[in-house]
């Protein structure tokens, strides 16, 4: 009697297990279809010609549907960004780590609070100011005042040649 019960238990468990794998195999494609598709992934990097950008100017390019700020900083802005003490920062990051080539700041123009696009050369720190909820960023795009929790994100990028930046 005992043996029969065990056999039946085994069959039940095995059936449920196979059923669960089958259900998972059916459900996964229905979920995965909403992930970025091949045509979206194909647009994952963008090359930008920056030869026309003079010091003190910012251009905004679209990368993965989001704005990327490319700013050619003036010596004063660089000096200001480097002079800030790390303990004064909400999200401590050195300017050298954010701008490998100090003249060029390449960062995602998306406020880390709730995703608005901050305004250039505004706010209390001569950097950016987000009009949605009042976050102030400095000349290195670091959060200094307001509700945003972190600095604006630096995307992966590199200089392909002296005048071309490849983002992504």
């Amino acid at each position: 009697m005992e043996k029969r019960t065990k056999r039946r238990d085994f069959l039940f468990t095995a059936t449920y297990a196979v059923g669960a794998v089958g259900a998972g195999a059916v459900i996964w494609p229905m979920i995965d279809q909403m992930n970025p598709d091949a045509s979206v992934k194909a647009l994952a990097s963008t090359e930008v010609d920056v030869s026309a950008v003079n010091p003190g100017k910012t251009i905004t390019v679209l990368w993965r549907g989001k704005p990327v700020f490319i700013r050619r900083r003036t010596p004063e802005e660089i000096a200001e960004a480097k002079s800030v003490k790390l303990e004064d920062l909400k999200h401590p990051e050195k300017d050298e780590d954010r701008a490998k080539n100090p003249e060029w700041l390449v960062m995602l123009g998306v406020c880390t609070h709730l995703g608005c696009v901050p305004l250039d050369q505004k706010g209390d720190y001569n950097g950016w100011f987000c009009p949605c909820h009042g976050s102030h960023y400095d000349t290195s795009g670091r959060i200094r005042k307001g509700p945003a929790p972190t600095n604006m994100e630096i995307p992966e990028y590199k200089f392909v040649d002296a005048n071309t930046i490849k983002i992504g």
Partner: peptide, 13 residues
């Protein structure tokens, strides 16, 4: 065609 080629599991669906 986009569904068939690009969308994840689009061909299956």
């Amino acid at each position: 065609e986009h569904i068939m080629r690009d969308v994840n599991y689009g061909w299956l669906i």
